[in-house]
Design a protein around this nucleic acid. Structure first.
Lengths: 256, 256
DNA sequence: ACATGACTCGCACGGTGTACGAGAAGGGCG
DNA sequence: CGCCCTTCTCGTACACCGTGCGAGTCATGT
């Protein structure tokens, strides 16, 4: 509400574009900000895991008191919503722009998986709370736009986008959940869990679980990328086969 | 130090993680049992939600002290593992036996979604912990067996099963996640909340989110079943198209 | 009669989220 | 200059959490 003159003639009425708030608190440090808290939360959870996250520990991470955070965020749940939307922004930021709808959907799926695997301890949040933040909506809007520009109808775009994004998210969540997968954990951790699960599967009676044992042995050379690309290809094949014969590059398109 | 025996399968070497120890009551009165605790947990969470679950409240549900439960279960996490495997047993129990692989996979996907929606507050657990319990393994073994019996190779079966089960689980988790939590169990109420979210999306600023708004309005008549069946059909189409024309023996052959 | 094993449970400890209110400090205004 | 108002931090407090520990109860084996 400060009515200060804007020397550069900015159009802002309420706030200058540069923070004019106080620079020092009684402890001499810059005040917290919501962005700072969200960033610190992501950093902390990436490093120590989601179970280790508490408001007190997060306060320590920021060199602040635990309850100081509550001036900037409503509660812990809202903080997690902000965190989730932030990494949805990461997805949106790093998906390459492709020409054809098929490549576009594939790149979105890969970017979603890449980001979730990078923040593997945050992936499980996707199963607990809806992602309706501004970044998620903006990404959805953009992806819908590219498909429509390729000649997809609204209904076809919605179904295809929903299917691809849902599947890629779910795949990544399960991949991050399962310690046997997840290429971003340290090798010794991964080795330990692989051996543990392998030993468990080996302990299964081969007469009662012949197919599971066969599966475990014959798929041992498959990486998570292999299975992801397999599913992605099958899904895009199914979508493509279901399209009406009229092809892209046609602005108007009607759902079948 | 007291050297008490406990019914849990402690000191595991290559044993599966689930408890293998037996328990039997000697007293005339019926004491607690692991099955009783698991059943009460499912009942409680279905009624009051996952956040309301605590060992003290669960003890009240059973008319027992909170710490009495710890004789039968190792800790809360193991209890949730048991709960998850129990509803995996529900899935296994109610999937109809079909003849063709395509119908078989479809019925498994539908049963998975049906059970998770029935226990909607438990669905999010799937995103947090792997499901490697005996019921899940048995169902996996059985499904792999049916596909192999239909001529699928081990690798093809594994990829297809993994894809379908992962997708159906993820879809159901997200479906259960989106409706606002509450005592609503009936599908009508659930559908109502889905429509409420659709209405919220349709009220977004149409100039900034034209495609999202168009999607929300044009898909308002779609039920969750419609979208599930759409995705299921696309996925099975993709799998079918990838099969070698005649019979099994299709190596992974992953495109890039 | 006595020991033993199978359970149950009260207590306590250190942790959690967060409501509350006291305080500190910079900016605006007299 | 003093004074207040807004902004922001944080210590304290409260109810609740998971669960380790050991004492207590009771049926059964010998």
């Amino acid at each position: 509400m400060t009515t200060r003159k804007d020397p550069l003639g900015g159009a802002v009425g309420n706030e200058p574009w540069w923070p004019t708030g106080r620079l020092h608190t009684r402890s001499g440090r810059e005040p917290l900000s919501r962005e700072q808290i969200v960033e610190a939360t992501i950093r902390f959870v990436d490093r120590e895991g989601l179970d280790a996250l508490s408001m007190r520990r997060l306060g320590q991470e920021l060199g602040a008191g635990a309850t100081s955070l509550y001036w900037h965020i409503k509660n812990r749940d809202q903080l997690l919503d902000l965190v989730l939307d932030e990494i949805m922004g990461e997805v949106r930021a790093e998906v390459p722009a492709a020409q054809a709808w098929r490549d576009q959907l594939a790149e979105v799926a890969r970017a979603m998986r890449r980001v979730l695997v990078r923040h593997r301890h945050l992936a499980s949040l996707l199963g607990e709370r809806p992602t309706l933040g501004p970044n998620a909506l903006e990404g959805l809007e953009w992806l819908m736009g590219t498909l429509r520009h390729d000649g997809f109808g609204v209904l076809d775009s919605a179904l295809a986008v929903n299917l691809i994004v849902n599947w890629a998210s779910g795949y990544a969540v399960f991949e991050c959940r399962d310690p046997i997968s997840g290429p971003s954990i340290s090798p010794d951790e991964r080795q330990a869990s692989v051996e543990a699960i392998g030993a468990m599967l080996a302990s299964l009676p081969a007469d009662r679980f012949p197919n599971v044992v066969a599966m475990a042995t014959e798929t041992s050379h498959l990486t998570a990328d292999d299975q992801f690309e397999y599913g992605l290809a099958r899904m895009l094949d199914g979508i493509e086969a279901h399209l009406t014969p009229k092809e892209p590059a046609a602005p108007p398109a009607e759902p079948s």
